[in-house]
Write a protein that binds this DNA or RNA. Structure first.
Length: 274
DNA sequence: TCTTTATGGTGAG
DNA sequence: TCACCCTAAAGAT
């Protein structure tokens, strides 16, 4: 179940496995794509880049493989000839002499040429990538003051891929908590200092999640919780998926509600609407 | 075995 | 805002 940080980690694995290598075969599990396999004969992988929550794998034949994992797609990297033990559906295989990159379950897969890439409806509307190392908090702050974004609650904003690409449902809860802001808060009603705090929290949570496999708590705090007997799945987040549990900062009870069609988690004491 | 939920996204109204 | 799509796994029966 992937947000930007998870996709970026998968990209790292795929890159290490197949970048600069000639493919022996590209295979598609979706019938409508099988006739495109021939175009990849003898092609070489020239780029592996995450864009928002999509994966773009470029080849020296001018084509790019686009995929989006939605809620359920999953990449596996294996030695050539071995398949993961899973009951999932194989949807795409990039096979080189020594390594295979295998995409399971995903249904959003496409073969794009340069024009198709530049006009792709999902890619075209993406905002700056949250994991782009050159992205600065000031850029996000400026976007919070943009007419397009300033009047919407930040809970909805953080899910909008045209605001910042790569954020998803666990990160929005964690970012709002880290910034000590209520998700209904509109950027328009915030002080500049609050907007800067929100911008910094956005980068901080996403980058930490990338570095520590989706853990948004500080590494030492997550480790301490695990030593104290908490399971790995329960010792990951400040508020996400912690309804009716106590806040790790103030001990009030975390509440859960629906916002923009998804569940969101909030500490009523730490995140007061102003 | 059925139902619900999920770290996602689109299009209609 | 809502219905709906996609697929897998967890939960309820």
């Amino acid at each position: 179940m992937p947000e930007g940080p998870e996709i970026a980690r998968e990209a790292d694995q795929i890159r290490a496995a197949v970048l600069d290598k000639r493919v022996e075969r590209v295979h598609f599990g979706l019938p409508h794509l099988s006739r495109r396999e021939a175009a990849f004969e003898d092609a070489r992988v020239v780029s592996v880049r995450p864009r928002g929550k999509a994966m773009l794998i470029g080849f020296d034949n001018g084509l790019t493989l686009y995929s989006h994992n939605q809620l359920y797609g999953r990449w596996y990297v294996r030695k050539a000839g071995s398949l993961p033990k899973t009951r999932r559906q194989l949807r795409m295989a990039i096979e080189t002499q020594d390594r295979w990159a295998l995409l399971y379950s995903a249904s959003e897969i496409d073969v794009l040429d340069e024009v198709g890439l530049s006009m792709h409806p999902y890619l075209a509307k993406l905002g700056p990538d949250v994991l782009d190392p050159t992205l600065e908090a000031a850029t996000i702050s400026a976007r919070l003051e943009d007419r397009r974004f300033q009047r919407r609650g930040l809970g909805a904003l953080l899910l909008d891929q045209s605001f910042v690409a790569g954020l998803g449902n666990y990160l929005r809860s964690e970012i709002a908590f880290e910034a000590r802001l209520h998700p209904d808060q509109r950027p328009l009603d915030l002080d500049p200092a609050d907007r800067r705090r929100l911008a910094r929290a956005t980068l901080k949570m996403a980058r930490r999640a990338y570095e520590t496999k989706g853990v948004t708590l500080p590494r030492s705090q997550a480790a301490a919780l695990r030593r104290a007997g908490q399971s790995w799945s329960r010792a990951r987040h400040w508020v996400f998926a912690r309804a009716r549990q106590s806040c790790r900062r103030c001990d009030d009870t975390i509440v859960r509600f629906d916002l923009a069609g998804r569940r969101i988690y909030v500490c009523p004491t730490c995140q007061v609407l102003r």
